[in-house]
């Protein structure tokens, strides 16, 4: 036997690490969701305006909203909230959290420009005349932004796609960079959180009234993302379980018989991946009217994945 007894009892550290809670899980989920929306709206934006629904056009605005709520959760997690400005007084090349802080800032102009470019002329006029914007003398900026987005449509969509991928991967790298925690010590978390974010973005999109073409396109994206997510999850578990390090094997055991087995398989794999995949295949093959079940389950699965992994890394 080997038994290690510590007389230390630091708050959030002992008996096991518990510094990161729901705030980080929600932040990582909403960050991934925003990334997914940015990537998907960048591809949907290639369709002619006539084929696009109002919901599909306005969807891009969900990215900055989701990100803002996520950043609020992140702020709640900080123990020195008044020092939050310190993220923006430096760029630490070796710190993914520092990179992420700057990526988040770049996302606002990119998504808002893309959103303005997706509006019709009448919608732009209504928005520019909106009383709060008028009071802040921002009406002209809205019109200028919409014109600018229209002139550089391809560049704006490209920036959204690139920043979306950066944001999605960053949410995973944030954890995978912390090699001291066995369940996070995997380079697969970056791509895993990226495809999970795309799936969550597609799920959120499918909650609203999309056109038939948009729905079919998003369903294809979601099916591909779910397929990739399953493959990456399998590789992640295999790499942990078959690795030489005992800590990695212990982390894999958390999902294969240990503490997080039931929530992981029930909420992430079955409810979040298998059921939405089956429902979307059925909807596509048999032309069934899509319901909200698949997207709601997809969103629950995406949040559960982050939550369980955040906790498992500290187990």
């Amino acid at each position: 036997m080997t038994e290690l007894d510590l007389n230390r009892h630091n708050l959030y550290i002992d008996p096991h690490l518990s510094v990161w809670g729901w705030e980080i899980a929600v932040y990582l989920f909403l960050g991934g969701l925003a990334a997914g929306i940015m990537i998907l709206t960048a591809t949907l934006g290639r369709a002619p305006p006539a084929e696009r629904s109002r919901w599909g056009r306005l969807l891009v605005f969900a990215a900055p909203v989701a990100l803002s709520v996520g950043m609020l959760a992140l702020l709640l997690d900080l123990h020195a909230k008044l020092h939050v400005f310190r993220f923006y007084t430096t760029l630490r090349v070796t710190s993914p959290m520092s990179w992420g802080a700057w990526i988040l800032i770049a996302i606002y102009p990119a998504t808002i420009l893309h959103g303005l470019g997706s509006l019709t002329a009448a919608e732009i006029d209504r928005l520019a005349a909106w009383r709060p914007l008028r009071a802040l003398r921002l009406g002209g900026l809205v019109t200028w932004g919409a014109g600018c987005a229209g002139r550089h449509e391809g560049a704006v969509r490209g920036a959204n796609a690139v920043l979306g991928v950066a944001l999605g991967v960053y949410t995973g790298v944030l954890l995978s960079n912390l090699g001291a925690r066995a369940a996070w010590n995997s380079a697969l978390l970056g791509p895993l959180f990226l495809v999970s974010g795309v799936s969550a973005g597609a799920a959120l999109s499918m909650l609203g009234p999309l056109s038939h073409a948009e729905h079919a396109a998003l369903r294809r994206w979601d099916l591909a993302a779910i397929g990739l997510e399953v493959a990456l999850l399998l590789l992640y578990l295999l790499a942990l379980a078959s690795g030489a390090e005992r800590s990695g094997q212990g982390a894999a055991a958390l999902f294969l018989g240990g503490r997080y087995t039931a929530p992981f398989w029930a909420l992430v794999v079955i409810a979040g991946l298998a059921v939405p995949f089956a429902l979307e295949i059925a909807a596509g093959r048999h032309g069934r009217r899509p319901t909200l079940v698949a997207p709601v389950l997809g969103l629950i699965g995406g949040l559960s994945l982050r939550w369980i992994l955040v906790l498992a890394g500290q187990a």
């Binding site: 630091n10 959030y12 123990h79 020195a80 960079n177 001291a180």
Partner: peptide, 25 residues
């Protein structure tokens, strides 16, 4: 004065040698 209390360093330390001081750092 520079610490935000984000806890990244705490999760990065393999020795669990750090903690959050009640003053927030």
């Amino acid at each position: 004065r520079k610490c935000t209390g984000c806890s990244a360093c705490i999760t990065a330390c393999p020795y669990d040698a750090r903690f959050i001081n009640p003053k927030g750092y």
